[in-house]
Simulated assay, not measured.
Amino acid sequence: MEFKNTDVGSILRIRRNLTIPEVGPQSAECCGRIYEKAEEIGACVVGPWHFISHGLPKDIETIFTVDFCLPVSEIKQVPSGDDIVLDTVTEFYCASRTYEGSLHQLFEMGYQPLLEEINAVNLECSGESREVYHTWDGPDSENNVVEIQFGLAPSPKS
């Protein structure tokens, strides 16, 4: 587990309210649309995909909010008319762990060990978590490199 502050920057974003099983199919659709929009408006891609979750549930039936985000530069606005917006990914303090492999074991081998480490040192999560896709070769690929980040709540004052 690593503790870090994340970078701030411009993103193209689509927000969806989904269950965990819906994330994969929606990510393919949303990321494709965002990438097409980036090319259309001449945005320069400056970083890997970020999937930002708000209130990630512990089950597969509960709906939560997911932002599919592509870091970009060289744009000031996005033409209106669809659900792709220009936004800013904010800095946040987090516990981070890098997972390598297929998405089939992302929760068991990525999320679970990180949450256990966070709980072992009595830290509280903020409710925001992120997946940063440093390398993506498809859901079944063992070559994927995904950084998992859990935002940490501010420490209580003594």
Rank of each mutant, 00 (worst) to 15 (best):
Glu36Lys: 15
Thr65Asp: 03
Glu74Val: 10
Arg16Phe: 00
Ile14Ala: 04
Glu74Ser: 14
Leu70Gly: 12
Phe68Ser: 02
Phe51Glu: 07
Val46Leu: 00
Leu123Asn: 03
Gln149Lys: 03
Cys30Ile: 06
Leu18Ile: 04
Gly42Tyr: 08
Leu86Glu: 01
Asp83Ala: 06
Tyr35Asn: 08
Met109Tyr: 11
Gly42Val: 05
Val121Pro: 06
Thr98Tyr: 06
Glu147Tyr: 03
Pro154Asn: 15
Arg130Gly: 11
Cys31Thr: 12
Arg33Leu: 13
Ser10Phe: 02
Ala120Arg: 06
Ile84Thr: 06
Glu117Val: 04
Ala95His: 00
Gln105Cys: 00
Arg15Val: 14
Gly138Gln: 02
Gly47Cys: 09
Ala28Leu: 08
Glu2Leu: 06
Leu114Val: 05
Thr62Cys: 14
Pro48His: 09
Glu2Ser: 02
Ser73Ala: 13
Lys76Trp: 03
Leu56Arg: 15
Thr6Val: 07
Ser129Gly: 13
Phe107Ser: 01
Cys30Asn: 13
Asn122Leu: 12
Val85Gln: 13
Glu100Val: 12
Ala43Gly: 00
Ser155Ala: 04
Ser141His: 02
Cys69Trp: 05
Ser129Arg: 10
Thr65Phe: 13
Ile20Phe: 15
Gly101Glu: 01
Asn143Asp: 13
Glu61Phe: 15
Ile63Ser: 00
Glu124Phe: 12
Glu131Met: 09
Thr62Met: 09
Glu142Ala: 12
Pro25Met: 08
Leu18Pro: 07
His50Gly: 00
